[in-house]
Design a protein around this nucleic acid. Structure first.
Length: 276
DNA sequence: ACCCAGGCGACGA
DNA sequence: TCGTCGCATGGG
């Protein structure tokens, strides 16, 4: 049960590893601000988070909507309603997948806001994680709303939709700038709508997302997994292609059925740290 | 100098 | 429908 104290929320999170979860390439808006302390922006919220025993303690810096709403929000964000102990146990029925789970234990697949995720993974294409985080940070600073303590929110689609590519020059996003604007314009116009996507089967939702310029199957799949909680979707980037060829040439093991996207996160992390 | 990064669109066959 | 290539930027 959530125990709010002032603007702090303590949530049971047995087995969760914040470091692994926040920096395994699924989110690009968290920073380590002190040993074991992480600050981040999610939508129009800013927060600090750290481990305290088996709990995580979240301090709202900005965007708080009150203790109950905040607890529910972070509970969902960190996917604390999913039984990862049981999931990891299932994954470990396969020896090679077990190796990835042991290596990258404690990773949780975050439930990120749809728009944050779409923006972030458009920026991610043919790019590296460090530079993605830099571009995301500049995007927030230049076009987000100022929050407390120097944080800025993710910019809204409505705000970005009014800009021209020249305005994005300072982001140093390169050829991705025009893709950011196309996504913003379609979302602002209501042509791409989160609620509609949530109601569609995964293949149809993927098709709709791929109408956005700069969104191919891989970026669409990242949005489906991280932004729309489609746990069966496996984004195939260069690291996952290498890992699958090496570990699972015949495809994802059956013990991951329905949760291939979550298994993917352990495999991706293992690959990045062992196949470099 | 060269290659690569959580890819994609344009183009030609 | 398939391969191939250029793309912005920055780090190794």
């Amino acid at each position: 049960m959530a125990v709010p104290t002032n603007n702090k929320i303590s949530l049971p999170a047995q087995g969760l590893n914040l470091q692994a979860t926040l920096f395994c390439g699924q989110s690009f808006s968290w920073w380590q601000t002190a040993p074991g302390v992480y600050s981040g922006v999610v939508g129009n919220r800013a927060a600090q988070v750290c481990h305290v025993g088996q709990n995580i303690v979240i301090t709202a810096v900005a965007g708080s909507q009150g203790p109950e709403a905040d607890s529910a929000f972070w509970q969902n964000y960190f996917d604390l309603n999913t039984n990862y102990g049981a999931l990891e146990e299932k994954f470990c029925k396969n020896k090679k997948l077990a190796r990835c789970v042991q290596f990258s234990g404690g990773i949780r697949v975050l439930h990120q806001p749809f728009w944050d995720t779409l923006l972030s993974f458009i920026i991610s294409q043919n790019n590296n994680i460090k530079r993605i985080a830099g571009i995301v940070q500049r995007l927030m600073q230049q076009f987000g709303e100022p929050l407390e303590e120097g944080f800025y929110s993710f910019p809204t689609a409505q705000k970005l939709a009014l800009l021209q590519v020249e305005h994005l020059a300072e982001l140093r996003a390169g050829f991705r700038a025009k893709y950011i604007l196309d996504a913003a314009r379609r979302v602002a116009a209501g042509e791409i709508e989160e609620d509609t996507l949530r109601g569609l089967p995964t293949p149809q939702a993927r098709e709709v997302l791929m109408q956005i310029k700069g969104v191919g199957q891989k970026v669409a799949d990242c949005v489906l997994l991280y932004g729309l909680a489609r746990t069966e979707v496996v984004p195939m980037d260069v690291w996952m292609k290498r890992a699958m060829q090496q570990l699972f040439p015949k495809g994802m093991p059956a013990c991951a059925k329905g949760y291939e996207g979550i298994a993917q996160q352990y495999i991706f992390d293992w690959a990045r740290q062992n196949l470099g």
